[in-house]
């Protein structure tokens, strides 16, 4: 697999999952991976800000709402792919692990290992958290009923 043949949607998916997951959970799954190849930084983890834009009226033109902290990092696996990460927050290790995972996921020998051992469980966790919040919200949905007044 070369970078030209990598499915952009697949890469968008794993990069999103890696960014949205908790750094602690990612680190936990990471320790289960054996025999990781050597790698080096192309860009050391760097903390900065991204301006979050909203839309006027929710669906109109953009406006600058406020910033969020973001950490970015790029790595190169020895003799292999280059991986990038942009993750919310200020965790260098989160960005580093996400960048390394992005690189490995682009390498045929590693793709399935990292997809199964890291991305899949993280995606499952995110989906479970989202579903639980959704079920809790659903329990607060109002069921309106009409009071019957008068006779019959």
């Amino acid at each position: 697999m070369t970078s030209a043949t990598i499915d952009t949607d697949a890469r968008r998916h794993w990069m999103g999952v890696l960014a949205k997951s908790s750094p602690a959970r990612l680190a936990q799954l990471w320790t289960d991976l054996d025999g990781l190849p050597g790698w080096s930084h192309l860009r050391r983890p760097e903390v900065g800000l991204v301006m979050v834009r909203g839309r006027m009226g929710g669906d109109g033109g953009p406006f600058n709402m406020g910033e969020m902290t973001v950490t970015r990092c790029s790595v190169r696996v020895d003799g292999g792919a280059v991986g990038h990460a942009w993750v919310a927050g200020r965790s260098s290790t989160h960005a580093e692990m996400a960048a390394l995972a992005d690189a490995l996921l682009q390498m045929p020998g590693w793709h399935q290992v990292v997809a199964d051992a890291v991305v899949a469980p993280l995606a499952r966790q995110l989906a479970e958290d989202r579903a639980r919040a959704g079920r809790q919200a659903a329990a607060t949905r109002v069921d309106f009923f009409t009071m019957v007044r008068g006779e019959d």
């Binding site: 900065g48 800000l49 991204v50 301006m51 834009r53 839309r55 669906d59 709402m65 970015r72 919040a133």
Partner: peptide, 22 residues
Amino acid sequence: RTTLPRFGSSQPVETGSMAIRR
């Protein structure tokens, strides 16, 4: 905030596809 570099701007957030809690 003034000590951090600005990396860029996000795409406008889509509140229409918000995961609703309220």
